[in-house]
């Protein structure tokens, strides 16, 4: 029997914590089946096999923070039929995008004894600022089932079934009592769904690690936070965290100064 041509998968890393690509290895029950269905052609965190392109699907983790990486991502795009970003760094610039609101040279000097040796850009930017992206998967980290859905969908040539509702709806779906009505400020009403509303199930307000949903009403939510006793500084910080450079969160953080 002639071996079928398996689609070729590549996993790339830019500035990141490795957690999103680890999500693929965390698919303990599915990993061997995935490896059977696709050729894992390039995934250095998992394998010494580093096969040359082209690739059918490239998963890209991390943000662009160096001139070298800004070039590298173009090479990856050219070799990839589909390019999907995985996680808050690749999709919104990540926590390291806090440099965008500061003087990067001062940041470098605060960490390194010899800042002159450090070559880094003034900003941390998402992949979509550099190349065309076919799909963006949110989350810090991404959700495993969503990752499997995205891989399956692209390899089957269909649109991924990833909802664009909010964490707020996910609480309703799982029957979690709203933490906000109990007095805990929560970003659930403006945050993209996908995690399954984990934080409220632990009596904690959502802190927005899946980033803004489409057209979020952050100003209205901010007013509710203030009524619950949050300070402008709290609001500034919570919007300026893992998805700080995502436009709706950036604007709302700006509205509350520092």
């Amino acid at each position: 029997m002639a071996e079928r041509r398996r689609p070729r998968l590549a996993v790339w890393k830019f500035a990141s914590c490795d957690g999103c690509q680890l999500s693929l290895l965390d698919c303990e029950d599915e990993l061997l089946a995935v490896a059977d269905a696709v050729e894992i052609a390039y995934f250095p965190e998992a394998s010494s096999v580093m096969a040359k392109g082209p690739y059918d699907l490239s998963l890209v983790e991390g943000s662009i923070t160096t001139a070298h990486d800004a070039e590298r991502v173009h090479k990856i795009r050219r070799q990839s039929k589909f390019l999907v970003t995985i996680g808050a760094c690749a999709t919104a610039g990540g926590i390291q995008a806090l440099r965008n609101f500061a003087d990067v040279n001062e940041f470098v000097a605060a960490v390194y004894a010899s800042p002159q040796y450090i070559k880094t850009l003034a900003t941390s930017t998402p992949i979509s600022s550099h190349v065309k992206v076919d799909f963006e998967l949110n989350g810090c980290p991404i959700d495993r089932s969503q990752l499997l859905e995205v891989i399956s969908a692209f390899l089957a040539g269909r649109k991924p079934a990833i909802g664009n509702h909010t964490v707020c709806i996910e609480c309703k779906l799982r029957g979690t009592v709203c933490v906000m009505v109990q007095g805990t400020p929560c970003l659930g009403p403006v945050t993209h769904a996908g995690c399954g509303a984990i934080c409220p199930s632990f009596n904690r307000g959502c802190y927005g690690c899946f980033g803004p949903k489409e057209r979020p009403n952050t100003a209205s939510l901010a007013a509710e936070w203030l009524k619950l006793g949050a300070t402008p500084r709290d609001l500034h910080r919570v919007f300026r965290t893992f998805n700080a450079a995502a436009e709706p969160f950036r604007q709302e953080a700006d509205a509350h100064g520092d």
């Binding site: 923070t65 500061a102 960490v111 880094t120």
Partner: peptide, 11 residues
């Protein structure tokens, strides 16, 4: 690995 400057951004 590109530096992400955590000690600076924590301030």
């Amino acid at each position: 690995e590109p530096p992400r400057l955590f000690e600076a951004l924590l301030r």
